[in-house]
Simulated assay, not measured.
Amino acid sequence: MTGHAPSNLQFPHHLVAALIKDALAEDLGLAGDITTNAIIAPDDVTEAVLALREDGCIAGLPLAEAAFRALDPGISFAAELRDGETAHAGSVIARVSGSTRTILSAERVALNLVQHLSGVATATRHFVETVHGTHARIVCTRKTTPGLRAFEKYAVRAGGGYNHRFGLFDAVLIKDNHIAAAGGVSGAIELARAANGHMVKIEVEVDTLTQLEEALRHDVDAVLLDNMAVPELKSAVARAKTAKPGILCEASGGVRLVTVRAIAETGVDMISVGALTHSVKALDIGLDF
């Protein structure tokens, strides 16, 4: 695995305090860490490291730091790597020192978040490297963990991927159920365009070349080519680019690491991968004294 932190990576700092507050409250409850408080003296101090147990791409270190410092602002936290950088098993990614009670009580929240987000970044990096040299971008979806969407989408960017829409509010995506409810592709597009201003992008999901032809007769910015076999997908991209040279073509539906290269070689602009967030394996990271 290779890759450096994207130069334009921006962490959603304004959302951190609420997330950490809720996560610590869930873990500490009404009585706090009754194990640590019984065993460790209030004035005891120690040093610890966050270390990788496997190769991976790092994301979420600011959340780990925030978890420790929420319990004790005097905790020292020094990141050895930046989010978006990759490292091998055994590497130290951060050092933390200060109150032993604080380090032990915040450990699980800090690790849960950095492990999960690093898992997202690592999975994304694998997909990005697999399509390297093609035109396609790897993008995430709305299939995210409730409450963690902004952070998971950040982790996708840390892994070298790109973000799709953040929610139902920032772009129109007409999906199969919208089409069914509206009575057809044309009706759904016309209603969406009439209800939204010129600044709002409209993408429509199509499952067949027949649906694609209908969509291309209207004012759409992108087409989502869903669950198409590679030969059909290649034909769909060629047809869409011929009819509307500036249109964006997105492939989606059951995309896996073993299939993504062939999909990318059809000429699509984007490949959306829900598994980056909904089925990701946490990266193994430990805290060692």
Score class of each variant (00 low, 15 high):
128 V>Q: 04
121 A>Q: 14
91 S>N: 07
37 N>T: 15
13 H>G: 00
200 V>L: 13
185 V>L: 09
83 D>Y: 14
121 A>Y: 13
52 L>F: 08
86 T>S: 13
6 P>A: 08
115 Q>L: 00
81 L>W: 13
179 I>G: 06
201 K>W: 00
260 V>K: 04
231 P>E: 04
284 D>F: 05
131 V>K: 01
200 V>T: 15
241 K>T: 01
182 A>E: 11
98 G>M: 02
97 S>G: 12
264 A>C: 03
40 I>N: 06
289 F>D: 06
131 V>P: 07
267 G>Y: 01
117 L>E: 08
263 I>E: 00
220 V>K: 04
204 V>Q: 03
107 E>Y: 06
30 L>Y: 06
218 H>P: 02
228 M>H: 05
167 G>V: 01
90 G>S: 11
184 G>P: 11
135 H>A: 11
180 A>M: 11
1 M>Y: 11
32 G>F: 06
145 T>R: 07
58 I>L: 15
241 K>F: 00
2 T>F: 14
217 R>C: 09
7 S>E: 14
70 A>Q: 15
171 A>Q: 14
115 Q>K: 13
57 C>F: 08
95 R>I: 01
140 C>D: 15
72 D>N: 15
191 L>I: 12
60 G>S: 10
106 A>S: 12
22 D>N: 13
275 A>G: 15
159 G>E: 10
191 L>G: 01
274 G>K: 04
207 D>G: 15
92 V>H: 08
158 A>C: 15
31 A>D: 13
72 D>E: 06
195 A>M: 12
154 Y>A: 08
249 C>S: 01
218 H>K: 08
57 C>D: 01
14 H>L: 11
139 V>W: 01
33 D>Y: 12
28 L>G: 11
218 H>R: 13
154 Y>E: 08
20 I>H: 06
284 D>V: 07
25 A>L: 12
67 A>M: 08
212 L>A: 03
11 F>R: 11
36 T>L: 05
163 N>C: 14
17 A>F: 03
110 A>E: 09
192 A>I: 09
3 G>P: 10
181 A>I: 09
223 V>W: 01
35 T>P: 09
259 T>E: 03
178 H>P: 11
209 L>P: 05
136 A>Y: 01
95 R>E: 11
40 I>E: 05
153 K>T: 03
11 F>M: 10
272 S>I: 00
250 E>I: 04
113 L>A: 09
182 A>F: 10
101 R>S: 02
205 E>C: 07
72 D>H: 08
131 V>C: 02
52 L>W: 10
67 A>C: 07
231 P>W: 03
103 I>T: 06
141 T>W: 02
76 S>T: 15
28 L>Q: 09
57 C>Y: 02
170 D>T: 07
36 T>G: 15
54 E>Q: 15
60 G>M: 10
12 P>Y: 10
212 L>W: 04
198 H>K: 08
279 S>R: 12
75 I>P: 08
58 I>Y: 08
141 T>Y: 01
135 H>T: 15
44 D>P: 00
242 T>M: 05
269 D>T: 01
95 R>V: 09
95 R>F: 00
263 I>D: 02
268 V>M: 02
103 I>N: 05
92 V>S: 11
158 A>Y: 12
10 Q>Y: 05
77 F>T: 07
69 R>M: 12
133 G>Q: 05
44 D>L: 12
159 G>C: 10
40 I>L: 12
20 I>R: 06
46 T>N: 09
